[in-house]
């Protein structure tokens, strides 16, 4: 399965991926900021907000039944 999964998604460069994003509509919310930085910057920011110790955190997220 794993090999098939990897094939599932086209491999293009990270830069291309995020450069392709269509500009948000003019009506976008006021919180939207002008995009000046690239993907590296986005990933850097997200590195900074991700919880420490991914494995432990994900393992600890245990829910009881739901609808």
């Amino acid at each position: 399965m794993a090999t098939k999964d990897r094939k599932n998604v086209e491999s293009r460069s990270v830069e291309e991926e995020y450069d392709d994003v269509p500009a948000p509509e003019p009506a976008a919310a006021p919180t939207a900021t002008v995009e000046t930085e690239g993907t590296d910057d986005l990933l850097d920011e997200i590195d900074g907000v991700l919880e420490q110790n991914a494995e432990e955190f994900v393992r600890g997220f245990v829910q009881k039944g739901g609808q």
């Binding site: 500009a23 948000p24 976008a28 919310a29 006021p30 919180t31 939207a32 900021t33 995009e35 986005l42």
Partner: peptide
Amino acid sequence: YRLAARGKMERLLED
């Protein structure tokens, strides 16, 4: 929310 703050998610409503 991090993506939206960078304008990477299309919004339909004002905050």
